Amino acid sequence: MRMVLKAQIPTEAGNDALRSGSMPKIMETAVAALKPEAAYFTLDGGDRTCFFYFDMQQSSQMPPVLESFFTELHAKVSIQPVMNMDDLRIGLGDLMSGT
């Protein structure tokens, strides 16, 4: 199932991770584990924020990736299902056909 992981990194924890040099490693590890179709990095509410769009095969994928966001970056993390346009077309088609 296609999912989006959003991680908001508080300023102080992000600054510490940058100073220690751990930020690039944490992000590279997340990308290697998730193999996202897209990864975006921005600001949200004044916090460093990243979005990873990926295919979750099993819920057991969550702990190896999420724990570094929690323990090393003190991030606020959310994961939720998302659709692309093809998924939406299929879902709406099923809705309209009554299946």
Rank of each mutant, 00 (worst) to 15 (best):
M1Y: 10
R2C: 04
R2F: 07
V4G: 05
V4Q: 12
K6C: 08
K6P: 03
K6V: 14
A7E: 01
A7F: 02
A7K: 02
Q8G: 05
Q8M: 08
I9S: 02
I9M: 01
I9G: 02
I9T: 02
P10C: 07
P10N: 02
G14R: 03
N15A: 05
N15R: 11
D16P: 02
L18N: 03
R19M: 00
S20E: 06
G21R: 03
S22R: 11
M23W: 13
M23H: 07
P24N: 00
K25S: 06
K25C: 02
K25A: 10
K25Y: 10
I26H: 04
I26E: 01
E28V: 04
T29Y: 04
A30W: 03
V31H: 00
V31N: 00
A32D: 04
A33S: 13
A33R: 11
A33C: 10
K35R: 13
P36C: 05
E37H: 04
A38K: 08
A38W: 08
A39E: 01
Y40S: 07
T42L: 04
T42D: 01
L43S: 07
L43G: 05
D44T: 14
G45F: 10
G45N: 09
G46H: 06
G46A: 06
G46D: 08
D47Y: 13
C50H: 10
F51I: 07
F51S: 03
Y53S: 07
F54P: 04
D55T: 15
D55C: 13
D55W: 12
M56I: 07
M56L: 08
M56Y: 07
Q57K: 15
Q57D: 15
Q58V: 13
Q58E: 15
Q58N: 14
S59A: 15
Q61N: 02
Q61C: 03
Q61K: 04
M62F: 12
P64N: 03
P64L: 04
P64Q: 04
V65G: 00
S68A: 11
F69Y: 14
F69P: 01
F70L: 10
T71Q: 12
T71P: 02
T71V: 12
T71I: 10
E72T: 08
E72H: 09
E72L: 11
L73K: 06
L73V: 09
H74R: 15
H74P: 04
A75Y: 06
A75D: 01
A75H: 02
V77G: 09
V77A: 06
S78H: 14
I79E: 09
I79Y: 06
I79T: 15
I79M: 13
I79W: 05
I79H: 10
Q80N: 12
P81E: 11
P81G: 14
V82Q: 09
M83F: 13
N84F: 04
N84Y: 09
D86W: 07
D86F: 12
D86S: 12
D87P: 07
D87H: 12
D87N: 12
L88G: 10
L88A: 14
R89T: 15
I90E: 11
I90A: 11
I90F: 14
G91N: 11
G91V: 09
L92E: 13
L92Y: 14
G93N: 14
G93T: 15
G93M: 08
D94S: 12
D94K: 15
L95W: 13
G98A: 00
G98P: 01
G98M: 02
T99I: 13
T99K: 09
T99R: 11
